[in-house]
Amino acid sequence: MLFHPAVLSLYLFSILISLMVLYAAFYGVQILMRWNLQSGSELQLSLEKKTYLISTLLTYLFSFQLISLFSFTHTVEHLHPLFVGAMCAAGTLYVNAYGYPALLLKLFNFLLAGLWLILNYTDNRGYDYPLIKKKYLLLLLLAPFLWIETILQMSFFLDLKPDVITSCCGTLFSTDPSSVASEIASLPSLPMKWIFYLVLFSTVGLGLFFYRREKGGYLFAVMSGLSLLVSMASLISFISLYFYELPTHHCPFCLLKKEYGYAGYPLYIALLGGAITGMGVGVLMPFRKIVSLKEILPSIQKRAALISAILYLIFLIVATYPVLFSTFRLEGY
């Protein structure tokens, strides 16, 4: 059990987020069951009012989720000196089995919440709540994941046993330091580079193509999702190495540190933003035929595709900068 203030604040965060989503889901169920735009009943009126509340709640939730994502990685990094063998955040997350699942779920929920906001934005633009049922179905899907995340995160922190001096024995080396793996397995760098640049450039290209011609929306969305995965793998495989100028340090979290100019923040924000807006284009594709959205949907999609392409481009530039301009050569031998 850790009583670190930052850990306590993360508990607070996740409990607040879980309660918010529970409240929203409760009304989500009501909307799914009772929603009838034709009716002028009191219930329908109150449900229409509630949609404002739920949009506001989810907007806050989304921003809280982003903050808690970065706060979580930062806290985990901060705690690493407490564990033998943990050199940075990657090591702390390995201390027990809950660390990485919690982090991945945080990422996943952030993406899901982002897609929900895109749906919500589109829905609010149509005059007859065209996407209301889909929107609340997605919300009901998000709620359990957020709860699992809260539980995983709590289990992670509660299960951390720092290696401190005990009264009986000051020595710790009896516990094998190698049991805490502090390095992350990585893919070979050279083929990864090819895949990375191929996928990322084609995603940016497809995004711009969609912006101009409004064609290939599904393909672009799939590629944005793929780009996210490939970029994550590449960050571990070679991009981070160029930032650290070390051929052995594969940690994707140290990028967020001051020593490396906080390069991780623009990288991750551009990457996550690009993925959300890019996949949002695909999510909106099936609704192009709905009457009340016919006029506005293409412009929303085009804007999303453009934003996604720009963000991925920013990610590419920030990630490629050290590859080109640092003196470090990864395949130099």
Partner: peptide, 19 residues
């Protein structure tokens, strides 16, 4: 007793008190 362990213990004690 290693110095690291002392540092770690202090860290924990004050974290705990602050918490």
């Amino acid at each position: 007793i290693l110095r690291e362990e002392m540092l770690r213990t202090y860290e924990m004690v004050f974290n705990w008190r602050g918490g």
